[in-house]
Computed example of a mutant assay.
Amino acid sequence: MHTRWRGITASTFAAVALAGLVAGCEGDKSKAQVAADANALDAGPPQPVLGGKLGAELAAAASGAPAEGRPAPGGGPTDGPPENGVFSPQAAAAALPKDMPYKIEVVDEGSEPRARLAPKIDPKSEQKLNITLGLRMGGPQGMPNLDLGVSLKAEKPADKPKEGAAAPAASAGPTKVIAKVTSATLASMSIGGPPKELADALAKLKGSALHYDLSPANAVSNQKPELAKDADPGLQPLLAALGEAIALVTPPLPEKPVGAGAYWMVTDRAVASGAQLPVLRYRVFKIEKVEGDVVSISVDTRQYAEGADLKLPGPNGEVTLTIDRLESSGKGTLAWSPSTFAPGTADASQRLQALLVPPGGSGQPGAQRSVAQVELTAKFAAAGGSVAPAAAPAAP
Protein backbone atom coordinates (compact mmCIF):
# COMPACT_ATOMS: atom_id res chain seq x y z
CA MET A 1 0.00 0.00 0.00
CA HIS A 2 2.89 2.36 0.71
CA THR A 3 5.27 1.47 -2.13
CA ARG A 4 5.73 5.09 -3.15
CA TRP A 5 6.72 6.26 0.33
CA ARG A 6 8.40 3.08 1.64
CA GLY A 7 11.93 3.82 2.77
CA ILE A 8 11.37 7.57 3.08
CA THR A 9 12.90 8.72 6.35
CA ALA A 10 13.68 12.06 7.88
CA SER A 11 17.15 11.92 6.31
CA THR A 12 15.55 11.42 2.90
CA PHE A 13 13.42 14.50 3.52
CA ALA A 14 16.61 16.42 4.24
CA ALA A 15 18.33 15.24 1.08
CA VAL A 16 15.34 16.23 -1.04
CA ALA A 17 15.01 19.63 0.59
CA LEU A 18 18.69 20.55 0.45
CA ALA A 19 18.92 19.58 -3.21
CA GLY A 20 15.60 21.17 -4.10
CA LEU A 21 16.73 23.35 -6.98
CA VAL A 22 18.67 20.56 -8.66
CA ALA A 23 15.97 17.93 -8.21
CA GLY A 24 14.92 18.35 -11.80
CA CYS A 25 18.33 18.00 -13.43
CA GLU A 26 19.15 15.76 -16.39
CA GLY A 27 19.95 12.81 -14.16
CA ASP A 28 16.30 12.68 -13.13
CA LYS A 29 14.70 13.36 -16.53
CA SER A 30 14.95 12.17 -20.09
CA LYS A 31 16.96 14.34 -22.47
CA ALA A 32 13.77 15.06 -24.40
CA GLN A 33 12.04 16.34 -21.25
CA VAL A 34 15.02 18.52 -20.32
CA ALA A 35 15.06 19.98 -23.81
CA ALA A 36 11.33 20.66 -23.66
CA ASP A 37 11.67 22.39 -20.29
CA ALA A 38 14.61 24.44 -21.53
CA ASN A 39 12.63 25.52 -24.58
CA ALA A 40 9.75 26.55 -22.32
CA LEU A 41 12.07 28.78 -20.33
CA ASP A 42 13.69 30.13 -23.49
CA ALA A 43 10.33 30.98 -25.10
CA GLY A 44 10.73 34.62 -24.17
CA PRO A 45 10.99 37.05 -21.30
CA PRO A 46 8.77 36.29 -18.31
CA GLN A 47 5.50 38.22 -18.24
CA PRO A 48 4.15 40.06 -15.21
CA VAL A 49 1.77 38.04 -13.06
CA LEU A 50 -0.91 40.65 -13.67
CA GLY A 51 -2.01 42.58 -16.72
CA GLY A 52 -3.17 46.15 -17.19
CA LYS A 53 -2.23 48.95 -14.82
CA LEU A 54 -1.30 46.58 -12.03
CA GLY A 55 1.04 44.59 -14.27
CA ALA A 56 2.67 47.80 -15.43
CA GLU A 57 3.22 48.88 -11.82
CA LEU A 58 4.84 45.55 -11.04
CA ALA A 59 7.08 45.75 -14.11
CA ALA A 60 8.11 49.32 -13.25
CA ALA A 61 8.90 48.36 -9.66
CA ALA A 62 10.99 45.37 -10.72
CA SER A 63 12.99 47.64 -13.04
CA GLY A 64 13.92 49.78 -10.05
CA ALA A 65 12.01 52.77 -11.41
CA PRO A 66 9.71 54.98 -9.32
CA ALA A 67 6.00 54.21 -9.52
CA GLU A 68 5.40 57.29 -11.69
CA GLY A 69 7.45 55.70 -14.47
CA ARG A 70 10.39 58.11 -14.32
CA PRO A 71 13.81 56.78 -15.38
CA ALA A 72 15.27 54.01 -13.32
CA PRO A 73 18.07 54.71 -10.81
CA GLY A 74 21.28 55.71 -12.57
CA GLY A 75 19.42 57.41 -15.43
CA GLY A 76 18.68 54.26 -17.39
CA PRO A 77 15.38 53.59 -19.14
CA THR A 78 12.45 51.79 -17.56
CA ASP A 79 12.68 48.44 -19.35
CA GLY A 80 10.66 46.34 -16.92
CA PRO A 81 11.93 43.40 -14.90
CA PRO A 82 15.15 41.60 -15.90
CA GLU A 83 14.27 39.47 -18.92
CA ASN A 84 16.00 36.39 -17.56
CA GLY A 85 14.53 36.81 -14.07
CA VAL A 86 17.98 37.44 -12.55
CA PHE A 87 19.00 40.78 -11.07
CA SER A 88 22.61 41.85 -10.88
CA PRO A 89 23.55 42.58 -7.25
CA GLN A 90 23.73 46.29 -8.11
CA ALA A 91 20.28 46.34 -9.72
CA ALA A 92 18.77 44.44 -6.80
CA ALA A 93 20.21 46.99 -4.37
CA ALA A 94 18.79 49.81 -6.51
CA ALA A 95 15.34 48.21 -6.50
CA LEU A 96 15.43 47.75 -2.70
CA PRO A 97 18.38 49.11 -0.71
CA LYS A 98 20.02 46.55 1.54
CA ASP A 99 19.25 48.59 4.66
CA MET A 100 15.52 48.71 3.84
CA PRO A 101 13.66 45.56 5.03
CA TYR A 102 10.65 46.24 2.82
CA LYS A 103 8.66 48.98 1.15
CA ILE A 104 4.92 49.36 0.71
CA GLU A 105 3.46 51.34 -2.21
CA VAL A 106 -0.29 52.02 -2.42
CA VAL A 107 -1.37 51.88 -6.07
CA ASP A 108 -5.13 52.39 -5.56
CA GLU A 109 -6.84 53.39 -2.29
CA GLY A 110 -10.09 51.62 -3.21
CA SER A 111 -13.65 52.77 -2.66
CA GLU A 112 -15.29 54.47 0.32
CA PRO A 113 -15.60 53.79 3.18
CA ARG A 114 -11.87 53.57 3.81
CA ALA A 115 -10.07 52.68 7.01
CA ARG A 116 -6.47 52.23 8.10
CA LEU A 117 -5.58 48.57 8.50
CA ALA A 118 -3.47 47.87 11.57
CA PRO A 119 -2.89 44.89 13.87
CA LYS A 120 -4.64 44.98 17.26
CA ILE A 121 -3.37 41.76 18.80
CA ASP A 122 -3.88 40.90 22.45
CA PRO A 123 -0.36 39.85 23.56
CA LYS A 124 -1.95 37.23 25.83
CA SER A 125 -3.95 35.63 23.02
CA GLU A 126 -3.25 32.34 21.25
CA GLN A 127 -4.12 31.49 17.66
CA LYS A 128 -4.41 27.85 16.63
CA LEU A 129 -4.15 26.86 12.98
CA ASN A 130 -4.23 23.70 10.90
CA ILE A 131 -1.73 24.15 8.06
CA THR A 132 -1.40 21.77 5.10
CA LEU A 133 2.06 22.29 3.66
CA GLY A 134 3.33 20.98 0.33
CA LEU A 135 6.82 21.20 -1.14
CA ARG A 136 7.34 19.70 -4.60
CA MET A 137 10.76 19.59 -6.24
CA GLY A 138 11.50 18.44 -9.75
CA GLY A 139 7.89 17.47 -10.51
CA PRO A 140 5.21 15.40 -8.79
CA GLN A 141 7.64 13.07 -6.99
CA GLY A 142 8.45 15.59 -4.30
CA MET A 143 7.75 15.51 -0.62
CA PRO A 144 4.24 14.40 0.39
CA ASN A 145 1.93 17.04 1.87
CA LEU A 146 2.07 17.52 5.63
CA ASP A 147 -0.73 18.39 8.04
CA LEU A 148 0.65 20.59 10.81
CA GLY A 149 -1.04 21.82 13.95
CA VAL A 150 0.45 25.21 14.79
CA SER A 151 -0.05 27.46 17.82
CA LEU A 152 0.92 31.13 17.58
CA LYS A 153 1.58 33.30 20.63
CA ALA A 154 3.49 36.42 21.55
CA GLU A 155 6.74 35.54 23.27
CA LYS A 156 7.11 36.68 26.86
CA PRO A 157 9.68 39.45 27.44
CA ALA A 158 13.07 38.09 28.46
CA ASP A 159 13.45 40.44 31.40
CA LYS A 160 10.68 41.48 33.79
CA PRO A 161 10.88 44.90 35.48
CA LYS A 162 12.03 44.79 39.07
CA GLU A 163 9.43 45.16 41.80
CA GLY A 164 8.60 48.82 42.33
CA ALA A 165 10.18 49.87 39.02
CA ALA A 166 8.10 51.74 36.49
CA ALA A 167 6.77 49.65 33.63
CA PRO A 168 8.53 50.33 30.33
CA ALA A 169 6.69 52.66 27.96
CA ALA A 170 4.87 51.08 25.06
CA SER A 171 7.01 51.11 21.94
CA ALA A 172 6.37 50.81 18.25
CA GLY A 173 8.74 47.86 18.07
CA PRO A 174 7.89 44.46 16.59
CA THR A 175 5.88 41.76 18.33
CA LYS A 176 7.99 38.69 19.02
CA VAL A 177 5.94 35.71 17.82
CA ILE A 178 6.49 32.01 18.41
CA ALA A 179 4.74 29.55 16.10
CA LYS A 180 4.95 26.15 17.79
CA VAL A 181 4.24 22.84 16.02
CA THR A 182 1.69 20.91 18.08
CA SER A 183 1.26 17.98 15.66
CA ALA A 184 2.71 16.73 12.36
CA THR A 185 1.32 13.98 10.12
CA LEU A 186 1.28 13.13 6.45
CA ALA A 187 -1.78 14.30 4.54
CA SER A 188 -3.85 12.25 2.06
CA MET A 189 -2.12 8.93 2.51
CA SER A 190 -3.49 5.62 1.21
CA ILE A 191 -5.59 3.32 3.38
CA GLY A 192 -3.68 2.14 6.42
CA GLY A 193 -1.78 5.36 7.03
CA PRO A 194 1.89 6.25 6.47
CA PRO A 195 4.81 3.87 7.03
CA LYS A 196 5.52 3.70 10.76
CA GLU A 197 9.14 4.86 10.43
CA LEU A 198 8.09 8.05 8.63
CA ALA A 199 5.13 8.67 10.93
CA ASP A 200 7.38 8.34 13.98
CA ALA A 201 9.96 10.74 12.52
CA LEU A 202 7.31 13.36 11.76
CA ALA A 203 5.69 12.98 15.17
CA LYS A 204 8.97 14.15 16.71
CA LEU A 205 8.49 17.52 15.03
CA LYS A 206 6.02 18.26 17.83
CA GLY A 207 7.49 20.99 20.00
CA SER A 208 9.52 22.51 17.17
CA ALA A 209 9.06 26.25 16.82
CA LEU A 210 9.49 29.16 14.47
CA HIS A 211 10.43 32.46 16.11
CA TYR A 212 9.87 35.67 14.14
CA ASP A 213 9.15 39.38 14.42
CA LEU A 214 5.83 40.92 13.38
CA SER A 215 6.28 44.63 12.74
CA PRO A 216 3.65 47.32 13.51
CA ALA A 217 2.96 47.24 9.75
CA ASN A 218 2.32 43.46 10.01
CA ALA A 219 5.48 42.46 8.13
CA VAL A 220 7.23 39.17 9.03
CA SER A 221 11.01 39.22 9.51
CA ASN A 222 13.94 37.65 11.40
CA GLN A 223 12.66 34.09 11.25
CA LYS A 224 14.58 31.60 13.40
CA PRO A 225 13.57 27.92 13.26
CA GLU A 226 14.10 25.76 16.35
CA LEU A 227 13.81 21.98 16.04
CA ALA A 228 12.45 19.94 18.92
CA LYS A 229 15.14 18.17 20.95
CA ASP A 230 14.41 14.69 19.59
CA ALA A 231 13.61 15.71 15.99
CA ASP A 232 15.90 14.59 13.16
CA PRO A 233 18.08 17.56 12.03
CA GLY A 234 17.14 16.61 8.49
CA LEU A 235 13.66 18.01 9.11
CA GLN A 236 14.98 21.56 9.53
CA PRO A 237 13.99 22.53 5.94
CA LEU A 238 10.37 21.79 6.79
CA LEU A 239 10.42 24.57 9.37
CA ALA A 240 11.94 26.88 6.76
CA ALA A 241 9.09 26.02 4.37
CA LEU A 242 6.57 26.70 7.15
CA GLY A 243 8.21 30.07 7.72
CA GLU A 244 8.05 30.94 4.04
CA ALA A 245 4.36 30.00 3.94
CA ILE A 246 3.50 32.16 6.97
CA ALA A 247 5.41 35.13 5.56
CA LEU A 248 3.90 34.69 2.08
CA VAL A 249 0.30 35.10 3.26
CA THR A 250 0.84 37.62 6.08
CA PRO A 251 0.10 41.00 4.45
CA PRO A 252 2.25 44.02 5.30
CA LEU A 253 -0.29 46.84 5.66
CA PRO A 254 -0.21 50.36 4.19
CA GLU A 255 -0.39 53.46 6.38
CA LYS A 256 -3.02 55.07 4.14
CA PRO A 257 -6.72 54.32 4.74
CA VAL A 258 -7.96 51.85 2.12
CA GLY A 259 -11.28 50.33 1.08
CA ALA A 260 -12.69 47.56 -1.11
CA GLY A 261 -10.80 47.30 -4.40
CA ALA A 262 -7.63 48.85 -2.98
CA TYR A 263 -4.30 47.31 -3.87
CA TRP A 264 -0.75 47.87 -2.77
CA MET A 265 2.63 46.42 -3.64
CA VAL A 266 5.16 45.11 -1.12
CA THR A 267 8.80 44.70 -2.11
CA ASP A 268 11.03 42.66 0.18
CA ARG A 269 13.65 39.94 0.26
CA ALA A 270 13.04 36.25 0.90
CA VAL A 271 14.76 32.88 0.64
CA ALA A 272 13.01 30.36 -1.63
CA SER A 273 12.31 26.98 -0.04
CA GLY A 274 14.09 23.89 -1.36
CA ALA A 275 17.46 25.63 -1.57
CA GLN A 276 18.95 28.74 -0.04
CA LEU A 277 18.11 30.96 -3.02
CA PRO A 278 17.88 34.68 -2.12
CA VAL A 279 15.16 36.40 -4.12
CA LEU A 280 13.71 39.86 -4.45
CA ARG A 281 9.98 39.40 -3.95
CA TYR A 282 7.11 41.54 -5.20
CA ARG A 283 3.65 40.91 -3.75
CA VAL A 284 0.53 42.75 -4.87
CA PHE A 285 -2.27 42.61 -2.30
CA LYS A 286 -5.85 43.52 -3.27
CA ILE A 287 -8.87 43.90 -0.99
CA GLU A 288 -11.66 41.79 -2.43
CA LYS A 289 -14.26 42.47 0.29
CA VAL A 290 -14.66 43.60 3.87
CA GLU A 291 -17.03 41.91 6.31
CA GLY A 292 -16.90 43.35 9.81
CA ASP A 293 -13.27 43.19 10.94
CA VAL A 294 -12.38 40.42 8.46
CA VAL A 295 -10.75 41.56 5.21
CA SER A 296 -10.62 39.14 2.28
CA ILE A 297 -7.44 39.76 0.30
CA SER A 298 -5.94 38.26 -2.85
CA VAL A 299 -2.19 38.26 -3.46
CA ASP A 300 -0.11 37.90 -6.62
CA THR A 301 3.61 37.25 -6.29
CA ARG A 302 6.63 37.55 -8.53
CA GLN A 303 10.19 36.65 -7.49
CA TYR A 304 13.57 37.41 -9.05
CA ALA A 305 16.99 36.03 -8.16
CA GLU A 306 19.27 38.57 -6.45
CA GLY A 307 22.29 37.33 -8.33
CA ALA A 308 23.32 34.68 -10.84
CA ASP A 309 25.28 32.46 -8.40
CA LEU A 310 23.49 29.64 -6.59
CA LYS A 311 25.53 27.80 -3.97
CA LEU A 312 24.40 24.27 -3.06
CA PRO A 313 25.89 21.51 -0.93
CA GLY A 314 27.46 18.70 -2.96
CA PRO A 315 29.06 15.34 -2.15
CA ASN A 316 32.53 16.92 -2.24
CA GLY A 317 31.69 20.29 -0.77
CA GLU A 318 29.81 23.37 -1.89
CA VAL A 319 28.98 23.68 -5.60
CA THR A 320 28.26 26.98 -7.34
CA LEU A 321 25.79 26.86 -10.21
CA THR A 322 24.89 29.77 -12.49
CA ILE A 323 21.25 30.77 -12.87
CA ASP A 324 20.78 31.30 -16.61
CA ARG A 325 17.04 32.04 -16.32
CA LEU A 326 14.51 32.08 -13.51
CA GLU A 327 10.72 32.37 -13.45
CA SER A 328 8.77 32.45 -10.22
CA SER A 329 5.17 33.47 -9.65
CA GLY A 330 2.36 32.70 -7.27
CA LYS A 331 -1.22 33.45 -6.28
CA GLY A 332 -3.19 33.22 -3.11
CA THR A 333 -6.14 34.37 -1.05
CA LEU A 334 -6.40 35.03 2.65
CA ALA A 335 -8.75 36.28 5.35
CA TRP A 336 -7.02 38.81 7.62
CA SER A 337 -8.26 40.07 10.96
CA PRO A 338 -6.51 42.71 13.09
CA SER A 339 -6.78 40.51 16.19
CA THR A 340 -4.79 37.54 14.80
CA PHE A 341 -1.09 36.85 14.29
CA ALA A 342 -1.64 35.17 10.90
CA PRO A 343 -4.57 34.78 8.49
CA GLY A 344 -7.31 32.53 9.88
CA THR A 345 -7.77 31.00 6.45
CA ALA A 346 -5.44 31.15 3.45
CA ASP A 347 -4.73 29.22 0.28
CA ALA A 348 -1.56 29.97 -1.65
CA SER A 349 0.88 28.49 -4.12
CA GLN A 350 4.30 29.64 -5.25
CA ARG A 351 6.22 28.11 -8.17
CA LEU A 352 9.85 28.57 -9.11
CA GLN A 353 11.51 27.27 -12.27
CA ALA A 354 15.19 27.78 -13.05
CA LEU A 355 17.59 27.01 -15.86
CA LEU A 356 20.97 26.19 -14.32
CA VAL A 357 24.49 25.95 -15.75
CA PRO A 358 27.05 23.71 -13.96
CA PRO A 359 30.39 25.08 -12.69
CA GLY A 360 32.62 26.28 -15.51
CA GLY A 361 29.85 26.18 -18.11
CA SER A 362 28.68 29.78 -17.94
CA GLY A 363 29.21 31.69 -21.17
CA GLN A 364 30.25 28.58 -23.11
CA PRO A 365 28.18 27.77 -26.22
CA GLY A 366 26.46 24.41 -25.96
CA ALA A 367 27.08 24.09 -22.24
CA GLN A 368 24.86 21.50 -20.60
CA ARG A 369 22.01 23.07 -18.66
CA SER A 370 19.60 21.71 -16.07
CA VAL A 371 15.98 22.60 -15.41
CA ALA A 372 14.88 22.74 -11.78
CA GLN A 373 11.44 23.27 -10.30
CA VAL A 374 10.16 23.97 -6.79
CA GLU A 375 6.52 24.46 -5.83
CA LEU A 376 5.32 25.49 -2.38
CA THR A 377 1.64 25.20 -1.45
CA ALA A 378 -0.04 26.11 1.82
CA LYS A 379 -3.58 26.00 3.17
CA PHE A 380 -4.45 27.60 6.51
CA ALA A 381 -7.61 26.80 8.47
CA ALA A 382 -8.61 28.00 11.91
CA ALA A 383 -8.56 25.28 14.57
CA GLY A 384 -11.41 25.50 17.05
CA GLY A 385 -12.79 28.70 15.57
CA SER A 386 -14.06 30.24 12.37
CA VAL A 387 -13.04 33.12 10.13
CA ALA A 388 -14.71 34.15 6.90
CA PRO A 389 -13.33 31.81 4.21
CA ALA A 390 -11.11 32.99 1.39
CA ALA A 391 -11.75 31.85 -2.16
CA ALA A 392 -9.38 29.31 -3.70
CA PRO A 393 -6.57 30.91 -5.72
CA ALA A 394 -6.13 30.48 -9.44
CA ALA A 395 -3.12 28.43 -10.56
CA PRO A 396 0.06 30.49 -11.03
Rank of each mutant, 00 (worst) to 15 (best):
M1E: 13
W5L: 15
G7P: 03
G7A: 12
T9I: 12
F13I: 08
A14Q: 11
A15L: 10
A17I: 05
L18C: 14
G20C: 09
V22T: 13
S30W: 08
S30K: 07
K31N: 10
A32F: 08
A36H: 11
D37P: 05
A38Y: 06
Q47N: 12
P48H: 03
A56Y: 08
S63H: 10
P66G: 06
A67M: 13
R70H: 14
P71Q: 12
G75M: 06
G75W: 06
G80W: 03
P81L: 09
S88R: 08
A92K: 06
M100T: 15
M100Y: 09
R116K: 14
R116D: 05
P119S: 06
P119F: 01
D122Q: 11
E126A: 14
E126V: 15
T132Q: 09
L146H: 04
L146R: 08
A158D: 12
G164R: 07
A166E: 14
S171P: 04
S171N: 11
V177T: 04
V177D: 01
I178A: 07
I178V: 15
V181T: 04
L198A: 06
D200T: 13
K206N: 07
S208Q: 02
P216T: 07
N218L: 05
A219D: 07
A219K: 01
Q223K: 08
P225N: 07
E226T: 13
L227E: 07
Q236G: 10
L239C: 02
G243V: 03
E244P: 02
I246T: 00
P254M: 05
V258D: 06
T267S: 14
A275K: 07
L277N: 02
Y282C: 05
R283G: 04
K286T: 11
E288R: 00
K289L: 10
I297R: 02
E306F: 06
P315D: 08
N316K: 12
T320I: 09
T320P: 01
T322P: 02
L326W: 01
S328D: 02
G332K: 03
A335E: 01
A335Y: 00
S337G: 13
P338S: 04
T340M: 06
A346I: 02
A346S: 04
D347M: 11
R351P: 08
P359Q: 08
P359N: 06
Q364V: 15
K379L: 05
K379F: 00
A382M: 13
A382P: 04
A382G: 12
A388D: 01
A388S: 11
A391C: 11
P396F: 11
